[in-house]
Design a protein around this nucleic acid. Structure first.
Lengths: 359, 359
DNA sequence: TTGTAGGCGTTATCAC
DNA sequence: GTGATAACGCCTACAA
């Protein structure tokens, strides 16, 4: 059915070794014989068996990428970058979507066995020390994307800076009561970006001589619904914030909903900054932080291929810079509290009662 | 380093054949020896080599999925479904993102060689007759998801029904002048859903004793900008439609923009129905058609695994039903023409409450 | 430069 | 039931 290297050898009147050399274009083969072999290969429509090659070389020619929650568009964008970078290298991209802890563990353990993939890309998953030890022990080249561990090669965005830039933007608009709507607190093997962004917010506040009080620091999962509820709570508490920095666009979406539901005008009464600059951010006019997601995938894949090729080297660390995208959900700080009843006609009440600014 | 089946055999004092039988839990092996072998395997932390097994069995234990434009959220959702279904089967999921014609061709041709994957999943890619012939010749089990060819197993959404439901909804609201804003006309290996949806619209109109005139049938690429322009043209022509069925939510977004720019109130002067029920549809209050994207991936993968296991059978065809999600971009038909003058001077107003879009 | 033979780790086909 | 042994298709010394 399928022609093998032996068929080619016979037809070309050479040994199998020579055919193999031609396939892997070894320098040491006579141009004449090479031509003959190539002709025979064409004649037989020969294509080397990937499996056989994999077994005999010990290389799988594929790399595994483990992602949590393929629902998250930012992850997808990175995946695209990875795919793009890999497509030119001959490596197959094997995708594992892990949405539970058990599956994450079993998948990684399985992959570390080393027989299925030549390298590992962990996206948005920060491994624990123990897990990193297992990775190191296995010797499987591994690169973290959008995740952190000091002993592993990685490409991360400058999340602290992101938090800072977002906050500084609000500060420049005159906001003083700024809240941070973050993702879930750190768990093993999970997203840590939110924490860093929060730190950025805190730093920016501090260098403006302000604080980020704990009552303005709320967090929940990355869902829109949860974000809406949290924002709602914020807005209905005494002294509600006038600006919110969100850890993701999805959460910003929830925040926007909450504002709308509470009759709070954006951006006149409340400014909202998202994070990620997802597709829908443009539609919504969402001010947000953009990071080159696609690019991070490309770089991660590049580093991994390099690592596979040249063996362990110094731990490479690539930092991706982020930028603020100004749109229309942020504006000058209001003089009054953003808490509102649905479009009350008694508009004369725009005084300072709860509207006084901090300091 | 890695222990092999032979090491296990030696330690357990049996032959390699027996070990192999234990691995594949063949019925014909004495409970006693089996226990011994298992113990030896545990002792040596033995794990069978996937590569060797693949070479020997001729099965790659992985399936390839080819998707165009991994950017499109609907594709991603399907991919998730595929991954989920496959994760329980032991098949690896190898992803190929094709964004150009050449790459698409080379990837598919490569995969058809049959040595890299046991089955093929084509998402959103309708192959031509010639390509289907190549697929059949290769004997590689193949399933289409969200794509069509009569000779291949497939899972498709009921697009005709979708167009009908959307249109019937508008008809029930009293609309008579209904337009269809479709995607690009059919090209090889490309999305054909738009055409079917259009047919649904036409059918619904007809059974209401109406027509879908060609001046109400416009199409462009799936971009928002193009949709905006097309809608704008529609609205400024004589006898503009009072309802528009769009082939995608993205296009509905463009339509909404056009309406706003022309000072046409939605839904009072113009009703708009989207398609897909993407994430942002909820936020915008977009009435739209929803189809179980995730489920389509699950089913497609299921059919493929079945196909691989039991060999070619009757061409299976799974039709996924769609449903209308009523929100606030559709309402009773107006009594007057929806043409208006360009929006009022309050151009700086950037509130989100009315679902305004950014430009 | 080229051919030959052994090996990669399993599975499958035999006899026993 | 079980143990040799030959594939599976390629790569890679080693020898020529």
């Amino acid at each position: 059915m399928h022609s093998t290297i032996r068929d080619v050898a016979r037809l070309a009147g050479v040994g199998t070794g020579t055919v193999s050399r031609v396939i892997n274009d070894s320098p040491k083969v006579h141009p004449g014989t090479r031509a003959g072999v190539l002709e025979a290969m064409a004649e037989l429509d020969f294509h080397p068996s990937a499996m056989a090659r994999r077994l005999s070389t010990g290389r799988t020619l594929s790399i595994g990428v483990v992602v949590p929650f393929m629902t998250r568009p930012s992850i997808i964008e990175r995946l695209r970058g990875i795919e793009g970078a890999l497509s030119t290298t001959g490596y197959d991209l094997v995708v594992f979507n892990v949405e539970t802890t058990e599956r994450r563990n079993s998948v990684v353990a399985d992959l570390l066995r080393g027989d299925r993939v030549d390298g590992l890309l962990l996206v948005g998953l920060s491994p624990t020390d123990t897990e990193v030890s297992a990775i190191e022990r296995s010797g499987l080249p591994t690169v973290l994307i959008d995740a952190y561990h000091r002993r592993l090669a990685r490409v991360v965005a400058n999340d602290v800076q992101g938090g800072q830039l977002a906050t500084r933007h609000l500060l420049e608009l005159g906001h003083r009561r700024i809240a941070f709507l973050g993702g879930l607190p750190r768990v093993a093997f999970t997203y840590s970006a939110s924490r860093l962004r929060e730190r950025g917010v805190r730093l920016a506040m501090r260098s403006a001589g302000l604080e980020l009080p704990s009552k303005y620091t709320v967090s929940g999962d990355h869902s829109r619904g949860r974000a809406r509820d949290l924002t709602s709570d914020l807005l209905h508490a005494p002294e509600p914030p006038t600006g919110i920095v969100c850890a993701s666009d999805t959460q910003a979406l929830g925040a926007l909903e909450a504002a709308r539901d509470s009759g709070v005008d954006v951006p006149r009464q409340l400014s909202i900054v998202g994070y990620d600059d997802l597709d829908f951010a443009t539609y919504l006019g969402l001010t947000t932080m953009r990071q080159p997601l696609f690019e991070s995938g490309v770089q991660g894949a590049g580093i991994l291929v390099e690592l596979i090729k040249s063996g362990p080297a110094v731990v490479r660390r690539e930092v991706i810079q982020v930028e603020l995208v100004r749109r229309s959900t942020t504006g000058p700080a209001p003089l009054v509290s953003p808490v509102g009843r649905p479009a009350s006609p008694s508009r004369g009440d725009t005084r300072m009662r709860s509207g006084r600014l901090d300091r």
